[in-house]
Design a protein around this nucleic acid. Structure first.
Lengths: 335, 335
DNA sequence: ATTTGTCATGTAAACGTTTACATTGTGTCA
DNA sequence: TGACACAATGTAAACGTTTACATGACAAAT
């Protein structure tokens, strides 16, 4: 690989001058600039980002870290795409870690990314008191939290109005006559789900429907839990007429359970999922869902991160995006 | 952040000794080793991977590049997970680029990853004559191609037996009486799809069924194409009794089209998709599919890459994994 | 007592950049 | 003409490591 030195030799200037050309330093004369550019072209020189990063921390050679809990979840895929979209346009590189709700793994990624001198980090914290992330913030490494914030410390956050999103879903179900609505939640140690439960309760309250603890189910936040919980729900004596499921994966698990028992959606049971998926419309019947703008969240987070990099002293922001209730065919009026 | 120097000062040895401790050099005495370890602990020292990578190319601080065409495709998500799984176990970091079938973007990622001094690259080439990747191979940077190979040059490849996979699907459809089977293919500039077509033809041939060009459809490799092509197919006068769709996204698009027209699967039309998805069983009816072992492919590719890093002169390998035909409820015997 | 060898440690160069500072050349002003 | 400003370029240190080589201490061999 060619380097500064070889370019310098080729165009008979010092390496400092070549470096200046690369960085568009206005102090270099037009003539030498052209000469150097020609050499760069000829030798196919590309700056070594590792050396750049080692030398200067100041977001010259930008590297972003992105740590997400579950890359199998289409919502996080959207987030990744959003971050990546912004990164691509601004010549950042992105380093991704997928920790699968494993705190040890998250910790390891945090360490690795720090060792890689990342300029900033976007992360969906495993819970609100994540010490590892807190430490980064304290070290003044730019951090933006996505999907969930941190409770102990002030930090930039991009999230969604979970309470309102859940409210809208339940409100809709109530408005079409449902009264026994089961909630398949993710793990309540994740703040997101606490907020969604609050929305559920508020809607019930608005309609004067009593809250029934027995209709709330929470275990892990994965496919299997969705399947198992739905099975339990479907066997309840006084079976709920509708299910509100707390995320993507839980919804899919629930659908498997429902189909396996040949229970008809929406005639025999209605279902709304939190999280829309690109192919929700391909399901049979097409699924009604609370859509989170994952792509936009990712983009916004990357943008905020960049601003924070440029201006570390800036006041911390808390961006809350709206969800959208998308009604398709998986819910129907209760006669 | 603490560094070698601060650790050296803290334990009153030279930085060379500290470095030796980090790298488990046997030449350092037990006593100093313990002393240095204590300092490392006390100062929470973590080696700076950037400096390590700059200094030594020889896979000490391992960084893998991973370039995939489409992170929205669950198959590639599985590949990512496989690569990441191996990387995690072996303390590599992974840098991911998602180029969305855009050759310019792929090129950019190739450049960035090179500038990041990656120790090796796993990539799904956009087509068989990808010059950018060829160049890397010629520069002796370890490269493993995944899902598709390169035609002009010898390179390590991990792929799947596409021909046989398609054959199995079509063979099954033929065996249960179907004769007019539409193939919704991805773009034929991607070698994968040429191979799948070959399997389609071989099965037909085995059954003595004439090949009908009019049943083969190819445009882009995305959801929209699947939807549009399926619409066209469903409106054919002599409508096919079965559809074989060439990948994940095409299948989902096709399903939307079928459901929108309220055509019953499998009573009115059978469908088999190439690529299984974690939630294929949640579809209604559960989808029959040709399963590719994406996770295993990713793991295997990472493993091969590591071997190539350790032994650059090793003979190039071409690993072909088997697909598996998973029969669920989206196909039925033609009466 | 001197030589030799071994082991543990230190010194300094190198990786490819950026950048503070020094140097050179040129033109302007008094 | 001499002093000076300014523009363009060069020199060298620094970023945090690894590692070839040098050094020193000590034990064994002569």
């Amino acid at each position: 690989m060619s380097n500064l030195k070889s370019v310098a030799k080729h165009s008979k200037v010092s390496i400092a001058t070549v470096s200046r050309v690369i960085n568009n330093d206005p102090k270099v004369s037009k003539a030498t600039m052209l000469k150097v550019m020609a050499s760069i072209e000829a030798l196919e020189y590309k700056p070594n980002r590792v050396a750049q990063r080692l030398r200067s921390t100041n977001n010259k050679t930008k590297l972003l870290g992105l740590i997400i809990p579950d890359i199998q979840n289409p919502f996080f895929v959207d987030v990744v795409r959003g971050v990546e979209d912004y990164a691509y346009q601004n010549n950042f590189a992105v380093m991704i870690g997928n920790f699968g709700q494993d705190e040890k793994k998250e910790k390891l990624y945090l360490d690795i990314l720090q060792s890689e001198n990342i300029d900033g980090l976007i992360v969906a914290p495993i819970h609100g008191k994540d010490k590892g992330i807190e430490n980064l913030v304290k070290k003044n490494i730019p951090v933006v939290c996505i999907d969930r914030g941190l409770t102990e410390i002030d930090v930039d956050v991009v999230k969604v109005d979970n309470e309102q999103g859940a409210f809208n879903a339940i409100d809709h179900l109530l408005s079409i006559g449902h009264r026994r609505i089961a909630f398949i939640s993710g793990n309540f140690k994740i703040p997101t789900y606490i907020e969604r439960l609050a929305g559920y309760k508020r809607a019930l309250n608005d309609y004067g429907v009593a809250f029934d603890e027995k209709l709330i189910f929470s275990r892990d936040t994965d496919y299997k839990s969705g399947f198992e919980i739905a099975n339990k729900i479907l066997e309840l004596k006084d079976r709920p007429t509708a299910i509100f499921s707390g995320n993507n994966l839980l919804t899919l698990g629930a659908l498997e359970a429902i189909h396996a028992k040949s229970i008809k959606i929406p005639e025999e049971i209605s279902i709304i999922g939190f999280d829309d998926m690109p192919w929700s419309i391909s399901l049979n019947p097409p699924l009604s869902a609370v859509r989170q703008p994952g792509f936009d969240m990712g983009r916004k987070a990357a943008e905020m991160l960049y601003e924070r990099m440029l201006n570390p002293a800036k006041k911390k922001e808390n961006i809350i995006l709206k969800t959208e209730l998308i009604l398709r065919k998986s819910t129907t009026r209760l006669e």
